[in-house]
Computed example of a mutant assay.
Amino acid sequence: MKKIYPNAKTALDGLLSDDMLIAAGGFGLCGIPELLLEAIKDSGVKDLTFASNNAGVDDFGIGILLQTKQVRKMISSYVGENAEFMRQYLSGELELEFNPQGTLAERMRAAGHGIPGFYTKTGVGTVIAEGKDEKDFPTGPNGEMETYIMEEGIFADLSIVKAWKADETGNLVFRKTARNFNPPAAMCGKTCVVEVEEIVPTGSLDPDSIHLPGIYVHRIIQGEHEKRIEQRTIREA
């Protein structure tokens, strides 16, 4: 199967439609699929739902799709650093489903492993638990019953992720903290499109260094990335 495409627009050809659910990797501005997000914006699709830790900043990442009103709903754990996100949410223009970060990552990972739901203690007794199935398990220190809530796996129509390297079959290596949400996001989509900094020949990656096997990856592009720093903190000269 040929997985390498010349650019983001061609890699997304035939995959985009209104009202779809997209899982996007990244954390803040670290390891975000910026080229694919730009191509999604240019395509004009609308009423999108994004499962992503956050929505970038006002003029970068998913933030560019908020500016053009192409996002209907966010499934996220952090919504800071984005004034337009806040404005749309508070005005009722944007629907928001809050998720604890670990729960969001596990919802993606679970779906990627074919698990439709799981129980977790995180969120019990808070607004996160409202409307969700609860069940008690004997997991206390002395076998006491403890309450858990059920969370559903996120089965996305499309996954878009950013990796450091890929071989021609789609085996991926992520760079340090840019690994973040990218592997679970890649797993949970019906189709996974990846943008990378470098494509290397098949067989050149150390098998023990591969973070995500190519079985999850359907399309790959190579490109130049801006790599913004979200909060630059330096000491005085």
Rank of each mutant, 00 (worst) to 15 (best):
A185I: 08
G125Y: 03
T126L: 02
N82M: 08
L48W: 05
V173M: 14
E38T: 11
V124M: 08
E226N: 12
G214K: 08
L66F: 09
I115M: 03
K73Q: 11
F60A: 15
P201W: 09
H225I: 00
V196H: 03
R107D: 07
F174S: 00
D13R: 12
R228E: 00
L94R: 10
I229S: 14
G114Q: 02
F181M: 14
C30I: 12
I4H: 06
G143P: 08
S77Y: 11
D157L: 05
I154V: 13
A83F: 03
P183Q: 03
V173W: 02
R107C: 13
Y78E: 12
N7Q: 07
N180M: 01
L158P: 04
S204Q: 02
E84Q: 14
L212H: 06
G112W: 10
K46Q: 13
E93N: 14
T169Y: 09
D47Y: 10
S77M: 06
E134H: 12
Q222C: 10
K3A: 04
P100L: 13
V217L: 04
E230G: 00
V127I: 11
T202C: 02
D13V: 05
A186C: 08
S209Q: 12
M20E: 04
A24G: 08
G203R: 11
L48F: 05
G92K: 05
P207N: 07
A178I: 08
L35H: 09
P201G: 05
R219M: 07
M74D: 00
K121M: 13
R228N: 00
E38P: 01
E146T: 15
G56R: 09
E230D: 04
Y78D: 12
E226I: 14
I75R: 09
A39V: 10
G214W: 03
L96K: 11
V57T: 12
N180W: 06
E81S: 15
P184A: 01
E197V: 00
P6Y: 11
G14T: 07
I32F: 10
L104V: 02
N99P: 04
L65A: 01
Q222F: 06
G114M: 03
S52T: 12
N182R: 06
H225E: 03
C30R: 06
D42S: 14
T233Y: 13
